[in-house]
Simulated assay, not measured.
Amino acid sequence: MSVALPRLGLGTAPIGNLFAEVSEPDAAATLAAAVAEGMTYFDTAPRYGHGVAEDRLGRALPDGGVISTKAGWLLRPGERVVTDWSERGLRESLESSLRRLRRPAVDVLFLHDPDDFREEVRRTGYPAARRIREEGLAGAIGFGMNHCEPLAAYVAEFEPDVVLIAGRFSLLDHDALTTLLPLCVRTGTTVVVGGVFNTGLLADPKPGAMFHYRETPPDVLARARRCREVCAEFGVPLAAAALRFPYLHPAVGSVVVGCRSAEEVRANAAAARTEIPPELWHRLAAEGFVPPELLEA
């Protein structure tokens, strides 16, 4: 892959008003804090706030930084989106993203959630993405998805430069380990892991916390709290262990964390710098939070 992704990146869905509105000053402060903390990778998408996240990112960082965005869904008036995996559709999506981002190209272009569009991606979507990369409009191409099985199928067929998997490689969800991550090692595909907190549960396992974008089941909440207890025995915040966990696998090149405030940015940056004692990883493995094979190397 021609693009070197920083180890830690900022996910911009929250400043696109995901779950709750973020004011313009707060969004600007969030991005400024990320830069101050040394975060140079920013992941975004047109669907994050119907263009709001890209626009805010473009105004804050019109140049510099590593940017990934996504294509495959076209924005329409009235908050509507329509799928379009044709070359014309992908180029329209990218061109509109570049206008909002205020830059001539992006570092990474992901095809966004093409779970149910295998034939369209095979026929027009991925060939168009290759041409976009050849023209220099994107430094690397791949797929950004929430489910491992269809993503692994795309990796096996196309051997993309990079993929983003959200929520499926965490202390509470090891789904990516069975097929996706070993496959990416074989194909040389860089993996970006998002959703390390599983929609917030592993940041703060309290009643009402969300898991995979839904209300957390009681048994999952209990598991998250037990994980926090084990981490506390070693003086390590749960969020730090959750953020550092994906790096245990050699396929993972970067982790992106969504933040909606400068305070969250600073907290996550501190978590990323936290040293995790090997003994903690082994205790977490004994309790089923870490696959033991990740500790065998």
Rank of each mutant, 00 (worst) to 15 (best):
V3Q: 08
A4V: 14
P6R: 05
R7N: 11
A13N: 07
P14M: 02
F19C: 10
S23C: 05
E24F: 03
P25G: 00
A27G: 09
A32F: 00
T40Y: 04
A45F: 06
G49H: 06
A53Y: 08
G58P: 05
P62Q: 00
G72K: 00
G78C: 12
G78K: 10
T83S: 15
L90F: 05
R91V: 07
S93G: 15
L94C: 04
L94K: 05
L94V: 03
R99W: 04
R103P: 01
P104Y: 11
H112N: 07
V121C: 09
P127S: 08
R131G: 07
R133C: 08
L137W: 10
I141N: 05
G142C: 09
M145S: 05
N146K: 14
C148I: 04
Y154P: 01
V155C: 14
E157C: 11
P160T: 05
V163A: 09
A166H: 09
G167S: 08
G167K: 11
R168G: 03
F169R: 13
S170R: 00
D173F: 10
H174E: 08
A176W: 14
C184K: 05
V185Y: 01
T189D: 12
V193D: 05
G195Y: 02
V196W: 03
L201Q: 03
A203Q: 03
D204Y: 13
E215A: 15
T216P: 04
P217G: 11
P217S: 02
V220F: 08
A224D: 03
R228K: 15
C231E: 06
E233T: 12
P237V: 11
A239F: 08
A242W: 01
A242D: 03
F245L: 09
P250D: 13
S254N: 09
S254D: 02
S254Q: 08
V257A: 09
R260T: 00
A271N: 07
R273N: 05
P278M: 00
L294V: 01
